[in-house]
Design a binder for these strands. Structure first.
Lengths: 148, 148
DNA sequence: GCTATTGTCGCAACTGGTCGCAACTGCAAT
DNA sequence: ATTGCAGTTGCGACCAGTTGCGACAATAGC
């Protein structure tokens, strides 16, 4: 029983190869970080980690590679309600879309998977005749322990 | 039959007064623009329009006032899926949350109101014991005429 | 293996948004 | 009308992200 495709190690590199996207030293370093990282990396963390593998990696290459990954549907970009300024966070796209909830007081990030979300997307596709490629639902508020 | 509160002219100023938030020349100019503007203004458009009313308005005052309005729950901030770079768009909050759909090909922005969305938020509040303050659902994809 | 092609890279300059600070202003109390 | 002062402002410096361009490197064809 194989793992779901998006969970396989080296999957991002493989995806590039399959689609004839050039694999460079710098991209290899960046993909490697994305693949082994825990969730919610921001661009500067990603740059720092990638530089440890290949010191020549530049800021703009990180951003260009992130854009590429977004367009290929391999990662999701999150704001996390701008809790920490304007920066963005990235995570590998898994099989199931999930909602991100950010606590405005303690900063905790929670995730939630819901069938109702899938229903909602279905409704949009049908009622608006709109073909969904990416979707992002972010909620800001107070978590159970902060809302007392 | 009065209009819904959030539609009333001068409503933003009135809200400030009610909550004892200081009304300055610069804020008056910015609120006036927000109140009379059509939807989806970005910060630089807002700055340009506000400067026509009060030339002393500075970039950072615009951003600070937007942050204030966000925190007061009077406006919503949108990315519109970063179709035009990184900038954000702002609109006055109406009574009903709505979803924004951005066509990745023609750039058209559509809005959609759904009971399912309300259900979903209810589910999050209940299942996660999370008190929602703001929510943002943005969808990128292809509109009816572009997906042919 | 060598070369031509074409895509990618690093760099520097730019836009969008934030922050610290000294100067200023709205407003309430006199 | 004057004063006092917390809250607000403009400014300059900064951080996050993008872009144009000449140099360079990954691949395809030989």
């Amino acid at each position: 029983m194989p793992l779901p495709q998006t969970e396989m190690p080296g999957r991002l590199q493989a995806h590039f190869a399959e689609r004839g996207i050039r694999i460079t030293q710098q991209r290899r370093a960046i993909l490697q970080v994305m693949e082994t990282a825990s969730k919610h990396l921001d661009a500067s963390q990603l740059l720092r980690k990638a530089k440890k593998i290949d010191a020549s990696v530049d800021r703009s290459t990180v951003y260009r590679t992130l854009r590429l990954l977004k367009r290929q549907g391999l990662i999701d970009e999150l704001d996390l309600m701008h809790l920490n300024g304007e920066k963005h966070y990235y995570e590998r796209k898994l099989n199931r879309d999930h909602i991100h909830m950010a606590c405005l007081r303690c900063g905790k990030i929670m995730e939630f998977v819901s069938d109702v979300f899938e229903t909602l997307k279905g409704e949009v596709e049908k009622d608006c005749r709109f073909h969904i490629v990416v979707s992002r639902l972010e909620i800001g508020g107070y978590c159970a322990s902060c809302s007392k």
